[in-house]
Write a protein that binds this DNA or RNA. Structure first.
Length: 480
RNA sequence: GCCCCCAUCGUCCAGUGGCCCAGGACGCCGCCCUUUCAAGGCGGUAACGGGGAUUCGAAUUCCCCUGGGGGCACCA
């Protein structure tokens, strides 16, 4: 795969710690990781916590935990921008000295009002340049009014800004439509654009791979970068956004969006990475189920698509099943055990747990769903419940008491050896020619759900006593 | 409102002028297997948004329209 990348690739993933890692950011992290590893480069983690009001330490930790869970290990960092404020202030005052930026005394409220007015008058919003050319006496007067000062970067008045995106090709915009923007807040803390430009320069970043939502801001960051001295060339690659299946912005309404939710529901990181890699990218040979090393090997920015992709939970589910089936029983048990302990507590019997996994693995979608199916093994007889929907199915079954009675008799009489139980002859003898019709009721009575782990194995795991208790309980309830 | 990006089955991708009356995957439907449901096997349904232009020939090139997404913060 030919890729014109410099020798020493340095990329960074730079999330703002204002929430847990969600699908879109995770995909960005993944693609940065893939690009770095593919080129033997360096993957840096940088935390963009310049907005002190919205950033939280717990998210700084949480994001790192999630990246580790995904297997996206970084080589440098985390670098916290909150610890580098003096660098950004120095850069800002330098721009001020050189006239590339200016002090602005407008308050956010005033700007908002003027923007609203501009909008209703049919004009475009954006800073109107009021403080652009103040002289010293005007500045002193505004400060004397008690106004605080922010620093604004002066963008060109005319001409065209252009850069070549590694994925999209040339992207241009007229400078006239890019307004002057704040780089230092009134409280002297830096804004994203400044910190971003300063750090990419300081850290020797060679490629910026991020979401398409940042495409327009690239012109501003590039202008700032140039004002700050340029440095070596920096390539940009903007990834298509991830949307919901309805093409609307991905949100909770579309199901899980935070990576923690997927972890807690029992999705495997292999499956999540695999699925995310295929959202907006595909290998030349069309493979789909690939581990991280294989993806690293095949990865290329040239293979990234241009259009936004919809996140399809159904395909992720399928892929997770594929990955669960690729695990050995020991591996599956290792992955599932923490979730099982959390869920079943002291009632968890490890031997039974592993035995349950063994019969459930081939049909599993997620570990969480597997635990749902195993719950009946770890619940006390007096806490055992049949799901409402399943009970309805049981009641609706023709000659259900006869069927349960026949099974009860079979279990009671049989010689118990722990092997799977074969009910076919028994049901046939009781004139049930089509097991398909009565099986859901038997499942419901024994497992509490009308579909679950194969009941013949389940009975063997549950034990003769408990199985009989449940069958009798179901028949007693039926008689009421 | 202005600016930017994008446009192949329901969804994710393949396709870079003839190999395409468009291929794969998920989903969906049917059949097989089956002591439930799955998993697995086999088969099926289903798309180049519209209009111009270039060309012997356009899913592939260009233009317009339409549609979708993003941006226009003292968020990132």
């Amino acid at each position: 795969m030919v890729e014109n990348a410099p020798m020493n690739v340095r990329v960074r993933f730079s999330p703002a710690p204002t929430g847990s890692l969600h699908v879109g950011s995770a995909r960005t992290a993944l693609f940065n990781f893939l690009f770095a590893r593919h080129h033997g480069g360096t993957f840096v983690l940088r935390i963009e916590d310049t907005d002190r009001a919205r950033s939280k330490d717990e998210w700084v930790v949480g994001i790192q935990d999630t990246l580790r869970w995904l297997g996206l290990d970084w080589d440098e960092g985390p670098v916290l921008q909150s610890e580098r404020f003096s660098e950004y202030r120095t850069a800002a005052s330098e721009l001020l000295d050189r006239g590339l930026a200016y002090e602005c005394y407008c308050t956010p409220e005033e700007i908002r009002e003027r923007n609203d007015a501009a909008m209703t008058a049919g004009r475009s919003p954006g800073y109107d340049g009021r403080c652009r050319d103040l002289d010293d006496s005007q500045r002193v007067a505004l400060a004397a009014e008690g106004r605080s000062r922010s620093v604004r970067f002066r963008t060109p008045d005319d001409g065209t800004s252009r850069f070549v995106d590694e994925i999209r090709g040339e992207v241009t915009v007229e400078w006239a439509s890019v307004h002057d923007f704040v780089i230092l807040r009134a409280d002297d803390t830096p804004i994203f654009f400044l910190a971003n430009a300063v750090d990419d320069l300081a850290m020797g970043i060679t490629h910026v791979i991020r979401g398409e939502d940042l495409l327009d801001s690239t012109h501003r960051v590039l202008a700032l970068r140039e004002a700050l001295g340029g440095g070596s060339p920096l390539s940009f690659a903007h990834l298509p956004l991830i949307l919901g299946t309805d093409r609307a912005k991905l949100s909770k309404r579309h199901g899980a969006v935070a990576l923690e939710e997927f972890r807690d529901a029992g999705y495997l990181p292999e499956a999540v990475c695999n699925y995310l890699a295929l959202l907006g990218w595909s290998p030349d040979d069309g493979r789909e189920v690939m581990d991280l090393d294989e993806v690293v090997d095949a990865f290329s920015l040239a293979g990234v698509t241009h259009a936004a992709a919809a996140f399809d939970h159904a395909k992720l589910d399928w892929m997770n099943g594929e990955w669960i089936r690729r695990l050995t029983l020991d591996e599956l048990a290792e992955r599932a055990r923490p979730l099982a302990e959390e869920r079943f507590g002291d009632r968890l019997d490890d031997e039974l747990f592993v035995a349950g996994l063994r019969i459930g693995q081939e049909r599993a979608v997620t570990i969480g769903q597997l635990l749902d199916q195993m719950e009946f093994l770890f619940v006390a007889d007096d806490e055992f419940e049949i799901a409402a929907e399943s009970w309805d199915k049981l009641v609706a079954t023709e000659r259900v008491d006869d069927a349960l009675g026949a099974v009860e008799e079979h279990i009671a009489r049989m010689e118990w050896d722990g092997a799977p139980v074969d009910l076919r002859d028994t049901l046939a003898a009781a004139a049930f020619e089509k097991p398909r019709k009565v099986m859901p009721a038997i499942y419901a009575a024994i497992e509490g759900r009308h579909a679950g782990l194969p009941v013949f194995d389940a009975i063997a795991l549950l034990g003769q006593e408990k199985t009989l208790v449940r069958l009798r309980a179901a028949r007693a309830r039926l008689a009421r």
